[in-house]
């Protein structure tokens, strides 16, 4: 049955959704419109803010800028690594948690904690651990003959932000994977065991395929997360450095726009990002419509 609330007052429903609409307009539609507009203007006078309509010049610049393509590459490496790492770790932990009999709820609670930590705080946490001068892990690494300094070494900086960003997302993925695992009837696993499949075989031929709707959903969510929600981690840990080694697309928008004051170029970049979000969202919705695909 579909439940339906009816209102006597014509205006009450609109009043009730007004705050949500206001938030959407002020923080989403309006800035998005601004970005669209700015992406086809160039600021001619930084002091007065005077701008000139330049058609798609900003985009042309952008696509001819090797720094932009570097950032695209960095972003793809970063997103792929964060997605794979956080999903693999979460799946592993969920499979383990599904088997735990004693203390299961404690184990689950602990695993969910990182999700409650604000991204910037998570970044700082990892920053402390790996801080070149005083960080405990970089100290240990140096003792073992592997000096760690992410302020100098781009690869190490990348590894660090990947780790921090993936760690933060493990909880979320874990919850979904655990729910997915628990939705698989036990008798299927038992039937496979009787059919002669060992634990690994059962996992890859029965459990993993049956988790595929969850996995696909999380794939999209994680890519979106890595692309857009990791700004504060980057900002807190590396600020895009060293030498652009961790300069993700979102971070570059901020950097070029607010630090470099290239508003037009920055706006063009956000329009590209907007296109990516829209694409991912469409993919996701399409998928949700046909959720059960086995």
């Amino acid at each position: 049955m579909h439940k339906r609330v009816t209102f006597d007052n014509r205006w009450l429903p609109y009043l009730l959704v007004a705050p949500q609409i206001a938030v959407t307009v002020v923080f989403f539609l309006w800035p998005a419109g601004q970005a669209l507009q700015q992406s086809v203007y160039r600021v001619t006078n930084v002091f007065t803010g005077a701008a000139r309509f330049v058609w798609f010049d900003n985009f042309e610049h952008l696509f001819n800028d090797s720094l932009y393509w570097d950032s695209v590459q960095v972003t793809f490496v970063f997103s792929a690594a964060v997605t794979v790492l956080s999903m693999a770790a979460a799946l592993f932990l969920a499979v383990m948690a599904d088997r735990v009999v004693k203390g299961a709820s404690l184990y689950k609670t602990l695993l969910v904690w990182p999700y409650a930590v604000a991204p910037a705080v998570a970044g700082v946490l990892w920053l402390f651990l790996f801080q070149p001068a005083v960080g405990i892990i970089s100290y240990e690494l140096a003792q073992m003959g592997q000096p760690f300094n992410f302020r100098v070494d781009g690869t190490q900086a990348m590894l660090l932000v990947i780790l921090a960003a993936a760690w933060k997302q493990v909880s979320y993925n874990f919850l979904f994977f655990l729910a997915g695992l628990q939705a698989i009837p036990k008798s299927l696993i038992e039937a496979a065991a009787i059919d002669g499949a060992g634990p690994a075989k059962r996992f890859w031929t029965i459990v993993f395929p049956l988790l595929s709707p969850t996995t696909f959903f999380l794939l999209v969510v994680n890519i979106v997360y890595a692309f857009f929600d990791t700004f504060s981690i980057i900002h807190a840990v590396t600020a895009g450095g060293p030498a652009g080694a961790t300069n993700m697309l979102v971070y570059k928008v901020y950097n070029d726009g607010f630090i470099g004051l290239d508003l037009g170029g920055s706006a063009a970049q956000s329009v590209v990002l907007m296109a990516i979000v829209v694409t991912l969202t469409v993919v996701q919705f399409r998928f949700i419509e046909r959720r059960v695909h086995y």
Binding site: P185, S187, L188, E190, A191, A192, I206, P209, L210, S212, Y294
Partner: peptide
């Protein structure tokens, strides 16, 4: 043979 058949749905 299980009560709910336990067929592999995929």
């Amino acid at each position: 043979v299980f009560q709910n058949y336990a067929l592999y749905p995929h």
